[in-house]
Amino acid sequence: MTSFNSIIIENIIESLDVGLMVLSHEGKIIYLNKAVCEILGLNREEHLGFGWGELFITDEISNAEFNQVVLDVIMEQSIGLKHVVPFRPKGYVCLKRLSITSSFLTENETDIGMVFLFEDITEIYNAEQREKKILSRNVELQKERIEGLDSLAQAVAHQVLNPTTVIGGMANIISRKLPEGDPLKRDVQIITEEALKLEGLVAAVRTYSEIPKPQPVEVHVRDFFIEAGINANRILSRIGEAIELRLDCSVDTMMVGKSLFMTAVVELLLNASNFTPEKVTDVHVKVESIFKKVVIRIIDHGMGIAEPYLGHVLDPFFSTKAKGVGMGLSRVKKIIFEHHGKLTVESPGPGKGTTVTIELPCPENNCCGADV
């Protein structure tokens, strides 16, 4: 039965895609499976019994990181060490990327050998590198787009504000000089109102172009959103409306530029209220950690967004409100971008509510706790 069990174990090991190498306590190779021979370019019959050093350490340069793994295992005497290192098999031109996991064989609490698992992750590594380059390029393009929009916004603010102010001022002067009941008064009043709209547009554009870089500090998530709800309700109370905020937070803290990020969140809460017909808007805020990101979802049950509009709601100057300038969500998007985050807006359709999602990178110290 023991022999039969050994055959089963050996067949299983031989069928693995992961390479297995066993070294004796003296560093001699005592076992190689088929996969490790393919990964490392070895021949089982030829290389069994070789010492690690004489087989792999041919000079000080070739596969230095790879060889250092074994030295680390020997020096640190640790179980489960995992490394990702470059490796070039003898006679190969291209580098491979290997994931190496190491452990020890023990008997009666005495180390009798070392075990190494090798996985060829070259394709995965190359795919990740390509993805990083694409993401980096997309970030650069987004940055260029925002910088271009900033320049345009500043130019618009400068070139439009002065003539708009003159038009509004002159219209007011003419209106005061016209006698009461003159039919031209109404026409001049329209000019004044439109000039004020232009001034509002210029002010919104200037605010967008002057959004500063954030100075991140650690904030307590629950307290932050409670404060955001209070700030939003202070504004909404002027028109007899309010927000009922329901918080669902599994993240204790996050790193943001507090005042700047507060501006963005309050804008989103006000937007939820604006597109809800009820006087009191129910808003669900959910904050969680997913794959080393702080993910914030702001969910309302209001009028929703029709499919033709959904792809444009973050564009500057786009608005479905008669008196809207269309810069609110654009400002929010820029603030999130300055935090190295991502903003998305989703809606199943009219009357089905809207979900705004903010993704922020987690700091290196993993302030948001364990990932889901």
Rank of each mutant, 00 (worst) to 15 (best):
I12R: 11
I191M: 10
T165R: 10
S6A: 14
K334V: 06
F318A: 04
A306V: 04
N365V: 04
E109R: 15
F261C: 13
V294K: 01
H284Y: 09
A242L: 05
Q68E: 09
E359K: 00
G326K: 00
G240C: 03
F337M: 13
I29D: 11
L198M: 10
V202Q: 05
F118C: 02
A228L: 12
V18D: 15
F50G: 08
T2C: 08
N172M: 15
C37M: 04
R97V: 02
A242R: 14
P316W: 00
L269V: 10
L152F: 12
V166E: 10
E54S: 11
V345D: 07
M21T: 07
R331S: 05
L117N: 06
D72T: 13
E144V: 07
I299F: 00
K258Q: 11
P363I: 03
V205D: 02
S259I: 13
E38S: 11
G351Q: 04
N271E: 11
L247T: 10
M303K: 13
E10N: 12
K292S: 00
E107V: 03
E107P: 04
F118S: 02
N366W: 13
N365R: 06
S347C: 11
N231Q: 08
K143L: 00
E218L: 03
F261Q: 14
V18E: 15
C367E: 10
G353K: 03
T344P: 13
E288P: 00
G168R: 01
L98Y: 05
E119Q: 14
D182F: 00
M114K: 06
M255W: 09
G27L: 09
V85H: 12
E193R: 14
S273N: 14
I79V: 11
P163A: 03
R88I: 05
E218G: 00
V205C: 07
T2L: 09
N366A: 15
L270K: 12
S250D: 08
A272G: 07
L196I: 12
G80I: 08
L20E: 15
A195D: 12
V73A: 08
Q77W: 00
D120N: 11
I298T: 08
